[in-house]
Amino acid sequence: MFGRNAGVAIAALFTALIAGAGAALAQEAGLGAPFDWQMGFQEPASPVMRDIIDFHNFMLWLITAITIFVLGLMLYIMFRFNAKSNPVPSKNTHNTMLEVIWTVVPIIILVAMAIPSFKLLYKDDVVPTATRVADLYGIDVAGEITLKATGLQWAWEYEYVDNGVFLFSSCLYGPDYWCFGGEAPEGAHRLLETDNPVVVPVNTLVKVQVTAAAVIHAWAVPAFGVKIDAVPGRLNETWFVAERIGTYYGQCSELCGQYHSYMPIQVNVVSQEDYDAWLAGQLAAMQPDRLKAPTTEFAQQGITPRRPLAVTPGIAN
């Protein structure tokens, strides 16, 4: 009696949940930022993220099928082999063929999964050249820039290494936080909008070098499929090609202390002309107060590193 109720309840609960997961595939998406009740990935803006979404969709169907298969077996067992329907239990405890099958079939499934997975890894993980981007993704990039991101507690400092010592820090808006962000403009994404967004040109190979001053952070932009740890004393490298003009947001993705939630990443992807104009304007208007030494920042926070920092991000002078 109870078994029947149990079966129905479990079936109802999980069909609902799994249907939800399936719906994630076909969801409307915003650009560059999450939206309310979002169930799937953000709209991709780079070839890497498109690859990730494709492979994940394949995986999602596979794991949904496996889960439903197991659920189906269990429900069948509940109805067919409950004490009422099957009063005399069988004594069968071995079936070599069956055991071989349920070892070998999962191996085959895993190999089928591993091949595209390795391809994805080796295709996307290595920082490419412009030629390689053209070969692998069919995109002719307009150019190449290198951006260095340094994680501070709690802001990102960016250096456009192709342009001398041009660097600035990028903080969260809001009077509560240590950074000088100030009031956020109207309509800003709370906890995502920064006072000094990173600006990059569209269709350009952007190489990102990532490190940190004191503790580990992670630089992440979901729409680009980029996430890499910022580790003191280590220069990690990742890359993206943004294919669409727009504003893209991410958040620090490694617990880095008290204000971990408050160090967003904002990347404005603009046309090459806008980028050139922005860069020229920035270089011309460089003010000493925009060029901050991280050691000063630490002093402002009342945090005194007990010994010289591992990596002292370039101090402009």
């Binding site: 999450p34 906890l191 620090c252």
Partner: peptide, 13 residues
Amino acid sequence: AGMPRRIADYPDA
């Protein structure tokens, strides 16, 4: 959708 873990406060979405 991109929500990091171990955050005390999150974007409204």
